[in-house]
């Protein structure tokens, strides 16, 4: 009974509302896209606030601390206060930065995560834009982030930033390959790049069981793509202070943070789409709750890893990618192909 879903009902009533006001079905579609965009941006902002608090809490709990606990019950308003503080901070531009490149970088970095949200299947019939090349779109769009890191690194006119920017390019370009290869295994099983179809095909069995190797590779590559802990060389605060973010402060700096958490949510959501069965789950809860729940579990795993492991060195990072992940993911594709062939030959 998908129509029982509260979100779908809101969508349907909005559509009716627009149909009464706007001329023609195309205009209604455009209006609905705007609604979806606003919903996505709102989700990103609220999510970032929640995730920053969650990260600090998880970090605290794993380090036998309490994390923020002063503002509100269990420190719930800590991030809100932080955001207010960042917003009211002086917008400071260091001397000698490349004005436009420097100012544009946080904005450019924020674009890909927002665009990725368009294809996330939050629930049955709850995909903002159900592209038939959804996964391909995700891969393509998320690689734009590389440019933003390079812009921030180059525009800051700071040696630490340049090193960080260069590392970002090397790392993100390299790790894109195992990321795509790990996704490819799932795509081969479904024969579709459409996110809703991929989830639909997992109604019986989750692909984590069919593609465990691909799942692990995806986790590693996604952590590297989002510059999280064992692979956070781009920031590498003990070596290069904060990498490309060194010269930013106030809300510009917060944009980087926002983008980081938005993309963390995006890769976790893609993981739950591809491997954890998306919105499928016992029907006492609506599908989007299951989807979000699985996504948050994935986010917890990323945080858990972050607060346990030390960071790799830049050459080890490259070695891990090119010497291990890519051959293993290629082998995984081969085995998947053989498996599919055998399955078909047996008359499945």
């Amino acid at each position: 009974m998908p129509n029982d879903d509260i979100l779908l009902r809101i969508g349907a009533s909005l559509r009716e509302l627009f149909a009464g006001v706007l001329p023609g079905p195309d205009a209604v579609d455009v209006a609905m896209y705007f609604v979806a965009l606003i919903a996505c941006v709102a989700l990103i902002f609220t999510n970032a606030v929640i995730l920053i608090l969650a990260e600090r809490k998880v970090a605290g709990f794993m380090q036998s601390r309490l994390g923020p606990h002063r503002l509100g019950p269990y420190g719930m308003f800590q991030t809100v206060a932080d955001v207010i503080k960042l917003l009211t901070k002086e917008d400071y531009r260091p001397q000698g930065v490349d004005k436009w490149v420097w100012a544009m970088a946080p904005v450019v970095l924020f674009v890909p995560p927002v665009m990725v949200y368009a294809v996330l299947p939050f629930g049955k019939n709850l995909v903002p834009v159900d592209l038939n090349i959804g996964i391909f779109y995700f891969v393509a769009v998320s690689s734009v982030a590389t440019i933003a890191f390079l812009m921030a690194g180059w525009g800051s006119n700071n040696k630490y930033s340049v090193i960080g920017g260069m590392r970002a390019v090397a790392q993100m370009v390299s790790y894109e390959i195992p990321l795509v290869f790990s996704i490819l295994g799932v795509v081969m099983l479904t024969g579709s790049l459409q996110t809703s179809v991929i989830v639909e095909k997992q109604s019986g069995i989750w692909f984590i069981l069919l593609q465990p190797v691909a799942f692990v590779i995806y986790l590693i590559a996604a952590a590297a793509e989002t510059n999280r802990m064992p692979f956070d060389l781009v920031e590498g605060e003990s070596e290069i202070i904060a990498g490309p973010f060194t010269e930013y402060s106030g809300m510009r700096w917060a944009m980087f943070f926002l983008a980081e958490y938005a993309s963390l949510f995006a890769v976790s959501a893609i993981a739950s789409t591809l491997f954890l069965g998306g919105w499928h789950g016992p029907s006492f809860l609506p599908g989007w709750v299951w989807f979000l729940g699985k996504t948050y579990v994935m986010i917890f795993v990323f945080m858990w890893v972050r607060w346990t492991f030390p960071r790799l060195r830049v050459d080890q990072l490259m070695a891990l990618c090119w010497k291990y992940l890519i051959p293993v993911s290629l082998a995984n594709i081969l085995i998947t192909g053989i498996g599919i062939f055998a399955y078909r030959a047996m008359g499945g």
Partner: peptide
């Protein structure tokens, strides 16, 4: 450690 008593 996540589930243990905290030292704060």
């Amino acid at each position: 450690e996540f589930f243990r008593k905290k030292a704060t």
